[in-house]
């Protein structure tokens, strides 16, 4: 599987590097201006810009014919799906690590910037992009990349629908105490992770039957 992930990385290397550089500049700018809205946005931004490159892999694989060719390689279909999800998770980790490292450096070297709000936004950002991936992968495997626009709209609807749904349900169950934001962020992340796990299993099933 390492080779497949490496192939994905090479295919989107340029885009990842540009996004990481842009995110680093914007996070540093947010840390410099020290506005609340900027600090929240800076935590959220990496999740919007970096993991989406993993979805681009799906398109490139089809365009280049790699998706058919990789079936003939000494790897199992299961590993092919794993490699696509692994690429996404690696980029998600980068999106998490980048603001964490910068915020930690500022927190300990200059002044405290880590607040509950920052952690909440980290969890929400991760949750949203995990929900996106949970829809993008199985539907792309099922319908093909030619329906990518519709799939992306559906995945956005699912992400924000889940976000709103969890928020509404939780408010019904526990009300809106002071610690609501923390609990909501955590519950939303857990629901997103569960969706991602279900999506992975669905994708495996779809890919097993897929023909090229």
């Amino acid at each position: 599987m390492k080779g497949l992930v490496l192939n994905h990385y090479y295919a989107i290397e340029k885009g990842i590097k540009s996004s990481v550089a842009a995110v680093a500049v914007l996070v540093i700018a947010a840390l410099v201006i020290q506005e609340d809205w900027a600090l929240r946005f800076a935590v959220f931004l990496p999740f919007l810009l970096i993991p989406v490159h993993a979805f681009e892999v799906l398109k490139r694989d089809v365009l280049s014919g790699w998706n058919r060719f990789e079936i003939t390689l000494p790897v199992k279909r299961k590993q092919i799906v794993q490699s696509k999800y692994a690429t996404f998770l690696l980029l998600l980790l980068v999106s998490l690590a980048l603001p964490m490292v910068l915020y930690t450096a500022v927190h300990f070297l200059i002044e405290p910037v880590f607040t509950d709000i920052v952690f909440n936004f980290l969890m929400r950002g991760m949750g949203l992009v995990l929900c996106l991936a949970a829809i993008v992968y199985p539907l792309t495997f099922k319908w093909g990349t030619e329906k990518s626009d519709m799939i992306f709209i559906l995945s956005l609807a699912f992400s924000f629908g889940t976000f709103g749904g969890v928020s509404g349900l939780l408010a019904l169950v526990i009300g809106t105490p002071d610690w609501y934001d923390q609990v909501f962020s955590l519950v939303f992340l857990i629901v997103a992770l569960a969706s991602f796990a279900v999506s992975y299993m669905l994708s495996q099933r779809i890919y097993k039957k897929k023909e090229f």
Partner: peptide, 10 residues
């Protein structure tokens, strides 16, 4: 295969 097999970015 008769068509391209590899990603053009590599």
């Amino acid at each position: 295969f008769d068509s391209m097999n590899f990603s053009g970015e590599l």
